[in-house]
Amino acid sequence: MSLFRLKEKIIQGVFTVLAFSSLLFLVGIIFVLFKEGLPIFKDVKISDFLFGRFWYPTYEPPEFGVLPLIVGSFYVSLGAMFVCVPLGIGSALYINEMASYKQKAILKPLIEILASVPSIIYGFFAMAILAPFLQKTFNIPIGLCTLNASIILGVMATPTVCSLAEDALSYVPRSFREASFAVGATRWQTLIKVVIPAAGSGISTAVILGMSRAIGETMTVLMAAGGAAIIPTSIFDPVRPMTAAIAAEMGEAPVGGDHYHALFAIALALFLITFFFNILAEIISRRFRIKLGLSG
């Protein structure tokens, strides 16, 4: 009998230890980023690093200003928002409010499949098909630019935004809608004045996570954005977002050198930015669930 109980205790112990692995990996990632990223600040001042306008890591002497990379990331991601926010939320509203049962059964899996297309495929598509198309349409010297990256990134983030927003909408109780219909509101008025505000913070979580996904996306921007480390002045300028710089340069950076540490420091900044977005989304969605009386 006590042997039985001992066995149970041991099994529980094993599960507890294994469950901590995810924590271990997250902490490990943070640790590695700090350990490999911080040494760059021995040679480069933190303000020169963050606000320096020139990223010439292989020049002699090298310059490690990551401002163009950070601006590039935000520029491309904000552009992507113009695609994925209206399309993602619009699709979510359609699926939740207008689609018949049958349409839903087709649309939801299709959107999920769109989400499962690998980023390399999006990147390849942007490079091989979208860029030449833009080049011709807008008569620009090169199609690989911010606009190209933003469009493809927006398409990529659309399913993320859509399914998260759809979740949020599905939590809005029927009774809210019925109350609105009962006072003579049209379906559209109900949607705009009752449903969207009720799901508002859930929808904003979807947007934030879409943004976070766009900023962290690597292969797509690496292939589509053109790769020039300059601060863009128009949407037809090429850019080099943070992720693209890491992916493109890490292979050539000598381990333990300044360039290597600088790339880790960029990854650290990138991690902190997405971490901030994720925590923000977590807080908002927790409030949202409490507001609608769902379990915290």
Partner: peptide
């Protein structure tokens, strides 16, 4: 939740270092 939100290239760096 946060591990799910870490950019994929960061996993590459972690793998490289570790």
């Amino acid at each position: 939740n946060n591990l799910a939100g870490v950019p994929s290239v960061v996993f590459g760096l972690f793998g490289l270092a570790v």
